[in-house]
């Protein structure tokens, strides 16, 4: 009994710092999603394009950001790129920019594959009705792509929750970093890690619910009976 009260007391003691870290995690997560989801679209469309000057830059971008470790990209932007161009950004801003660029590349690939999975009969039907290329893309193809890309997007989004832990390497005080500080300070207890794990799990659980809801919503027109 005594040890349980003791443990609860300890958790209450470290909780404010962990929650503060969780807020930073949430900030990195939310801003990455908000900017990376739309940024992926031009690159996804670009890598599908017939035009050389859209296609190859998009392909190169995706190759570069998917092909190198995220942690290396963080180091690059934090220690080299932004100092070199003389732009004094704080570490959390640099972390978010890096994450946006990295995740946009993954989303671009998902969009590209989603767009390519649409039957060519849809393009032909649209063309036979006189729809222009952009009307076809935005009115016919992309709306059908949404449902198909939702599962892989959810996957990436869950991965992103956990990837946010990487930003501690450039000194951002997010959830895991604060948990580790607590563990290092108060030897002989891993309670801080357990609480951090619980927060991550809660977070991914809520996202799983959200993605399930969205998938259902976007496949309602496929229901067999009304």
């Amino acid at each position: 009994m005594d040890s349980i009260t003791h443990l609860l007391g300890y958790v209450m003691l470290i909780l404010p710092s962990l929650l503060k870290g969780a807020l930073v995690t949430l900030e990195v997560f939310a801003l990455t999603i908000i900017f990376a989801l739309p940024l992926g679209l031009p690159f996804g469309l670009g890598s599908n394009s017939r035009f050389f000057f859209f296609k190859w830059p998009s392909k190169a971008y995706i190759w570069l950001f998917r092909g190198t470790p995220l942690i290396l990209q963080l180091f690059f932007f934090y220690y080299f790129f932004f100092p070199a161009i003389g732009l004094p950004l704080d570490s959390i801003t640099i972390a978010i920019i890096t994450f946006v660029l990295n995740y946009a590349a993954y989303f671009a690939e998902i969009y590209r594959a989603g767009i390519e999975s649409i039957d060519k009969g849809q393009y032909e039907a649209a063309k036979s009705l006189g729809l222009s290329r952009s009307q076809t893309m935005f009115g016919i193809i992309i709306p059908q792509t949404v449902k198909r890309v939702l599962p892989p997007i959810s996957n990436e989004v869950i991965t992103l929750v956990k990837d946010t832990a990487l930003v501690s390497v450039i000194g951002v005080a997010e959830l895991l970093k604060n948990a580790r500080s607590a563990v290092n300070r108060d030897v002989n207890t891993v309670a801080a890690y357990a609480v951090a794990a619980a927060i991550y799990l809660l977070f991914t659980f809520l996202l799983t619910l959200l993605s399930r809801y969205l998938e259902k919503r976007f496949s309602r027109h496929e229901a067999k009976e009304v």
Partner: peptide, 13 residues
Amino acid sequence: TGMVFQHFNLFPH
């Protein structure tokens, strides 16, 4: 011209 395809190609959404 209007076209009707073998596989309909209706817009499913």
